[in-house]
Design a protein around this nucleic acid. Structure first.
Lengths: 357, 357
DNA sequence: CTGAAAGCGCTTACAG
DNA sequence: CTGAAAGCGCTTACAG
């Protein structure tokens, strides 16, 4: 018999460790490999005694199925791809934790990749995940077109956050950013503020636009005119918030409150205010958005709107699990709610933001 | 011929998509599968013309090798497992980014799992990663015993951070926490502080102990007695820093400076100080450790010691890549350095921390 | 330099 | 309910 590999244990390429195979379990239990497989996957009814024998053998030998073989043969890998934008985002990090926890509970493993807010990178991520044969893909917001998402949903289940999209094999869940921003602005208005500046997020970011809309809506509902001079562009990070606040101050527009489209920018803005000897909240109230865990410890602790990032991740994972089971996902995200801490207060009569030191 | 599967495209289990296989490439190029494989892996010399034909066919068909099959057959998956402690840690997140970037450049994919600072969970993570046949494992600090790490290094290459460990097939790289803390304390001393409080990190955490040691060493080198009453335990997060500072204040021990074993605790401490009407740095200087990106925007911007998290991740990945290539990794982490911002200053003559409002 | 063949560890029609 | 067999898409000795 030519061309035969040596049968020494080390000849096996994939089992670098002397791992136990399904075949060995079958032999130990005195049944066929098929039967073991069926028990493993619950894919057919098996007589109780054989099941017992197999379970015992699995336990005794410490058998762990090889996911690669499983994936190759069965077409599933028990893993789900997660394209996030940056693996170290303080906001999305929490969502990743939610995904991880939820998936873990069902025996699935997340595979995290970063798209860096770039459609073509996100597309590459998806290609990569598909080549690794993930069973489904979760896309956290990002810049991929809806069409691209629908397209990949033709091949495998996808759940996307930050959009409202109806398509077969695709579930989307979106936090109500408009409502959150509306509530935040309303809070400021109810405190007595009339001149409320806004630091916007990246305009290419869908959430950013919704939050701007919410701000405008609250203003208009209160009969306060929207003034473009009072909104400064930002990039969702601390530095841009600081710069935006500085720009606002430079224009000498008067404002008694400042609402930033996320906490990071709000924090940066606070620093700018402080550098101009403006006190928060006595001279200007500051409101953020997201409720990052650190915002509770800023000076002063930041008032903000709570964004349920953990639940968002959990919900996305849960929906994916549903789809994988062939069920129809149903999921509702908590409603936005304002968290009042110490950075907002009623405006002091005479003080105005432009009275700089 | 019985037992034959239908040959319709959809009969293939693994290729849910109509993906191109190596076999198809071989056929299109008029060579054998072996040859295509060899070209793909650079595992043997192949005549130039065949190589051309194959490359052309690969490009034309858009062939992407199936990692699962590759893993099964060849025993490698081009993926490396990364056990981090929490997927949303502000500090480790940056390290993960470093790993991701470095690995990506070499065509490898990281697989992130969280050990939650728990030895048995970390062990489970490693099992899981091994069952997925990762080519190597990077362990970011954690609580796993050195012995356990050495044990897994017998099966596949491992690189570990936060330890100094010599073992075959294992590379470790550690930031000099002792030196960093020594430098930080020295900075405070050079400013004129004599009564320097310390908020320690979790005592089960190796870094925490090194930082405490560095603090003591600097004190003693300056002829300042170490006073246990001046050190309060913390847990490395904001809240514990706040509580620790409060406890310190409650004891009515006098101190003009406060050094926290990480930035998060320093930030929490600042809030406590502020609540007691103590100004930073006029009444008490505050020093952190890690140099999180947000610390640059705290109020006041935090003086701290820079911890090169990104480089740590990059270095770990780089070392892993070396080992995978069969080379011996060499890597040096940057030395600790103090970043002076605005939370530290010389003590004001008469003022003392315990003179509370 | 190159191909035919066996094998990686599973899953799943097929045929009892 | 259960087993024998083929096949998933690759890799790698073996033998030219």
């Amino acid at each position: 018999m030519p061309h035969r590999r040596t049968s020494s244990p080390s000849a096996s390429a994939a089992s670098g460790d002397g791992s136990v195979t399904l075949q060995m379990v079958a032999q130990a239990a005195g049944v066929s490999a098929s039967t073991v497989s069926r028990i493993l996957n619950g894919t057919a009814v098996v007589s109780e005694d054989k099941k017992q024998a197999v379970d015992e053998a699995i336990a005794r030998l410490g058998f762990v199925p090889n996911p690669m073989a499983r994936g190759l043969a069965g077409g599933r890998t028990l893993s789900v791809g997660v394209v996030t934008q940056s693996i170290d985002s303080p906001f999305y990090g929490v969502a990743l934790r939610g995904i991880e926890d939820e998936l873990d509970r069902a025996g699935y493993t997340p595979m995290f990749v970063s798209g860096h807010w770039n459609a073509s990178e996100e597309a590459r991520c998806i290609e990569m995940l598909r080549s690794r044969r993930v069973d489904g893909i979760i896309v956290l917001t990002g810049r991929l077109s809806d069409a691209a998402l629908k397209q990949t949903a033709k091949a495998l289940p996808v759940v996307a956050t930050g959009r409202r999209l109806k398509a077969p094999n695709l579930f989307s869940l979106d936090f109500d950013n408009f409502e959150g921003a509306r509530l935040a602005t309303q809070h400021l208005i109810s405190l007595g503020h009339q001149r409320i500046a806004f630091i916007a997020g990246n305009t290419e970011h869908p959430d950013a636009n919704e939050r701007l809309r919410g701000y405008r809506a609250a203003l208009e509902a209160a009969g306060i005119a929207f003034k473009p001079e009072l909104v400064a562009p930002g990039l969702f990070h601390e530095e841009s918030g600081m710069l935006a606040a500085e720009r606002l101050l430079d224009t000498r527009q008067r404002f008694t409150a400042l609402f930033a489209a996320n906490d990071q920018m709000a924090l940066g803005a606070c620093l700018a205010l402080q550098r101009h000897s403006l006190r928060v909240p006595q001279d200007v109230s500051v409101m953020g958005f997201d409720d990052l865990s650190m915002s509770r410890y800023s000076i002063p602790p930041l008032s903000t709107v709570h964004h349920p990032a953990y639940e968002l991740g959990q919900g996305a994972a849960c929906a994916m699990l549903c789809m994988l089971r062939g069920e129809k996902p149903v999921f509702e995200l908590p409603h936005p709610r304002v968290v009042v801490r110490e950075s907002t207060a009623s405006p002091a009569g005479a003080h105005a933001a432009s009275s700089r030191a």
